[in-house]
Nucleic acid binder design. Structure first.
Lengths: 221, 221
DNA sequence: ATCGCCATGTTAGCGTCGCTAACTTGTCTT
DNA sequence: AAGACAAGTTAGCGACGCTAACATGGCGAT
């Protein structure tokens, strides 16, 4: 895990200055790629212990720098979390987008596949998911994050629009149906990753809920 | 706010010892009702700033005691949160239970009313809701909390059982349908309180989602 | 009545955290 | 070669969770 750490010791070897520039190891006094290293450390730590118990000091130890170093690259803790959050939204958009790609645009299967991919992302990256959708006004209100979230939703909206058009509801506002589907999938994801579903119904298959409820909601247009 | 504080002064009046035993004001050195006061302070502070940024020190200031006092009544911060969480579950059970009471047991209306009450509780007590369902393994794994959550779910399970029986599905396992409904309502509640729904679709009415999707899911038995 | 026990308060302090100030290093431009 | 500036460092502040050791005073036993 923390194999990045290394003793600074005496900066006796300043000869290797031309070898690594912005790539990996630090070259003496300067780290060389601290911003990236901090984001990756934060992602790993958040995945391990959740977004709330993530600490700057831990990220610094992982990156092998002092606790003051991050503030050259991020205004504060929330700015670092914002960067992690942005990457998470990109990951979600990619997951849902590529999941529905094999299916016909606007088909029931495409929409359900997107929903299952949303659930899959949450199950595989519960900490990231919580960071994206949990309560953190300082982060969620930042324009970049808002826009990233909006972009993700566009994905679904597009599918719903095509679905309605294919069912003879062209021109209809896709928003209500999209919100119904989003709510369903988001609820399943939250219950699945935060634990209560396993407590109430151990061994239950969350995908089955999306399958059944999704079809019911789609059928009711 | 902190009107509980008062100078101990001389304990000249020990005559009123039988009047206020565990009720309100402190009587000299001892607070008299610190456990309750801390829970109430925690509830207020959590409601203001969320469960994560709640601090013991703040609760102590509200109660007018030193920062070491709470540890006579709660093992640690999480134990205090557990107490708040328990009360929250009781509140949710009461809200959903009384909401469906006016309707015929097992009717579609009763189930929808319960779901709307669940949503209403989340909207009125977003911080409590997050505390109950957010990620906090230290709290959620405690037996008391698990049981309180299970009790809440029994409420829904009961309604679904009656619904199925009234529709000629007596003896059928109510769990799958209950999970579908719970997921839907939980998703709407989460999206509504954590913000993204307002960003994506400002002015949207969350109850309408429960109404439409709930009926669709129920109709698909 | 009084006396002592011990529940419930207090102060003092440890280690950690987020963050800032002031200093140092070394890279890159000129 | 010089020196400006980016990107590290150490030192330190205030707040936090929590503990240890001490103080108080309500209560039951005598």
């Amino acid at each position: 895990m923390a194999e990045l750490q290394q003793e600074a010791g005496k900066p006796s070897e300043k000869a290797k200055k031309e070898t690594a520039k912005k790539e990996s190891g630090r070259r003496g006094y300067h780290h060389g790629n601290l911003r990236e290293a901090l984001i990756e450390a934060a992602e790993a730590l958040i995945a391990e212990r959740g977004p709330d118990s993530f600490t700057m000091a831990d990220a610094c130890r992982h990156a092998g720098v002092s606790t003051a170093a991050p503030y050259r690259h991020f205004e504060d803790r929330n700015a670092l979390l914002e960067a992690v959050c942005m990457r998470a939204f990109e990951g979600l958009a990619e997951a849902t987008g590529s999941a529905k790609a094999p299916f016909e645009e606007g088909s029931e299967e495409a929409i359900l596949a997107g929903g299952k991919a949303y659930l899959g992302f949450a199950l595989e990256n519960p900490a990231r998911f919580r960071l994206m959708f949990g309560r953190n006004p300082d982060i969620k209100s930042r324009p970049n994050v808002e826009m990233a979230g909006r972009l993700c939703f566009q994905n679904l909206l597009q599918s719903v629009l095509a679905y309605l058009a294919a069912r003879g509801h062209a021109g209809e506002d896709p928003m209500p149906l999209a919100l119904r589907l989003w709510s369903l999938v988001h609820g399943v994801a939250n219950l699945a990753i935060d634990g209560p579903m396993d407590i109430i119904a151990p061994g239950n298959n969350p995908e089955a809920i999306i399958e059944a409820s999704g079809r019911a909601i789609l059928a009711a247009v």
